[in-house]
Nucleic acid binder design. Structure first.
Lengths: 231, 231
DNA sequence: TCCCGTGTTTGACGCAGCGCAAACTCGACC
DNA sequence: GGTCGAGTTTGCGCTGCGTCAAACACGGGA
């Protein structure tokens, strides 16, 4: 809490091309919060009182359907903005954000957004860039769900996670957050059973190693072949 | 072409809360274009040279997958913005926009966007509101694709079209643009065969009437029951 | 160390919906 | 009015994957 050094965050995409003093001014108005694993940063349909920057950790963005099923919209990694409902003229959060591990988050009051836009246009434009790629991602996923079959989608999801949160180890690329078969199934619109079967097959082929809430990608290129060949 | 009266468009959502003279100034810098049925307003992966407002007609936003399949992202109706890639910091269009009927479109040079943002903040904020609901829509569709089965998705798509472009007739609500089974299948991630079978069943039940590129919703509430019950 | 709970694996079975194929119908154009 | 092509309908077989069910394994807490 209190004063946070601008130099810690000035390289993050949301602050790109901003003057150091503007960054410092922005940080000054943020509250820093610790969120422990499993807790919600914000909840679906809740009034959007704040917008956030994830400083450290990983956050799962989840939607619950009317009949209680969960769909994982995306994982947020440190350095990314989240809960920017007010930038898009919405008064509630469209999904819940659940800490996948213990996290540190910066929070700004939502009412500040309009002021931010006029005072720090660079920050606003960076934010909209984020929104743009998020819209892009969403459309990509729609196309994927509409045209690809389960094995390809699961391979894609694993590869995306590996690229986003992967850590090199001697075994291969470790997905560096606790993630269950169930989670993967909620990212890909299938069941944990099917995911388990697929991962078993990949493990038998030596493409991945996996355990309880743990996945290591050994031969990523084999998965890429499944997930759409060329590209 | 040339001077377009601000009063014609000032009630459209993109111009909400804007001063009449600002609207007029904006319009002055737009080119008005006629696009005939089947022609593209802009193309996927093309450099984003302009952004657009659909004045009259209906436009299909389509993505083509690497292996040649098409997915319909959405239909745009008159009064909506489209191709606003530069507002999101993108340099190419993520999809193609094809006129579903003869259309009239306003086009602004893309390079103008930054100027627009600073000079007409109301317009920018309206634009971002649009983006927000589009992102919302996209997420909704992901959830739908992940959790609902084909019949429900098709019912949803038909209802959405009816709500968006429907015209009351004595038979029921007519979807007022030429739309094939194939189109519906590309909106829902299924095949034209399955769509045809479903629509035949609905027609037999008296819920819809349909013909060649033509759908009339007779008993919308029956479709809603399919498409997620309560809500 | 043992126990218990949560996550995972695997099998058996059924069916929604896709692929393929063929026939039909309507509208447009000559 | 006849012809042609695009859009539609319908049947049939097959299969990917969901559902149900049961056993299994790992890790953390007592």
């Amino acid at each position: 809490m209190g004063s946070l050094d601008a130099s810690l965050v000035c390289d993050l995409p949301p602050f790109e091309h901003m003057a150091r003093q503007d960054i410092a001014a922005l940080l000054e108005r943020a509250r820093s919060i610790r969120v422990e694993k499993g807790a919600a940063v914000f909840g679906q349909d809740e009034a959007a009182h704040s917008f956030f920057l994830l400083l450290d950790g990983h956050v799962r963005v989840v939607r619950v359907t009317p009949d209680g099923e969960q769909v994982i919209a995306r994982y947020i990694s440190s350095g990314e903005l989240m809960g920017i409902a007010q930038a898009l003229g919405r008064s509630t959060y469209p999904a819940s954000a659940i800490a996948a591990v213990d996290c540190v988050v910066l929070a700004w009051p939502g009412a500040m957004w309009t002021e931010v836009v006029s005072r720090y246009p660079g920050f606003a434009s960076n934010t909209y860039k984020t929104v743009g790629s998020r819209l892009q991602d969403a459309q990509d996923r729609i196309v994927e769900m509409a045209t690809e079959r389960v094995e390809q989608r699961v391979a894609n999801a694993v590869l995306k996670l590996a690229a986003q949160t992967g850590r090199r180890t001697e075994e291969g690329i470790l997905i560096d957050l606790p993630i269950s078969r169930q989670d993967i199934s909620e990212m890909t619109g299938t069941t944990l059973h099917t995911v388990s079967r697929l991962m078993s097959a990949w493990e038998a082929a030596g493409w991945v190693k996996s355990g309880r809430q743990r996945i290591v990608v050994v031969e990523g290129h084999k998965l890429m072949l499944l997930a759409g060949g060329a590209k």
